[in-house]
């Protein structure tokens, strides 16, 4: 799981061009949206594509996405349980 969290942080930094961040700057329970990393709705679309492309997870319900993208901890747990690749 720790390896998955690190991989997720690195992929998010690359996909969202978070140039001023390293994986160490993102705590596992930091909020990804709002006051945490400050991601926005375009970033949410990028994350949905990232989950589909890298882990074979298709998110279709926007309401559930809000919960899944709460933090690295929540996201990694969801990927671990639902990944198809």
């Amino acid at each position: 799981m720790e390896q998955l969290k690190l991989e997720l942080k690195e992929n998010i930094i690359e996909a969202l061009n978070l140039e001023e961040f390293t994986a160490n700057d993102i705590a596992d329970d930091d909020a990804l949206f709002g006051d945490g990393l400050g991601l926005d709705s375009i970033d949410a679309l990028e994350l949905i594509v990232l989950l589909d492309k890298d882990y074979g997870i298709k998110l279709t319900d926007p309401e559930s996405s809000k919960e899944i993208f709460k933090s690295i901890n929540v996201l990694a747990a969801y990927i671990d349980q639902n990944r198809t690749k």
Partner: peptide
Amino acid sequence: KEEFITPT
């Protein structure tokens, strides 16, 4: 292959 097109 025309999948996973990102918006940015």
